[in-house]
Amino acid sequence: MAHKNRETETLSKAVARIQAGVLAITCGLICGLGLFAMTAWLLVKGGSQVGQHLQLLGNYFIGYSVSWLGSVVGLIYGSLFGGLIGWGIGRVYNWVVTLRQGPEA
């Protein structure tokens, strides 16, 4: 087993860095499209009280509502918010890795 571990070491000695920009775009797309899809889905399903819980996101995303216009607004907000989260995770991760390993070669 010790031997196998050594082998994994030689497979790659590198510690991954995260491309914060790429993660931002990924998270942004997931959140934006996710919110758009959820809103649209509730609208298509219809009913007496459409999206009473999702509606609450309007507390944070001013102008957002469970409506067709709201789904487009949600797409924009979701993208921005998700992008920010992705970027934040990437930056903090890289910062801690740099603290522990030193700057990237």
Partner: peptide
Amino acid sequence: EAAFAKLDPLAMGVALGVV
């Protein structure tokens, strides 16, 4: 080297914790 670079669990923990 890039594909098999390890994620640093501690750094990932801190990042997710902070965010």
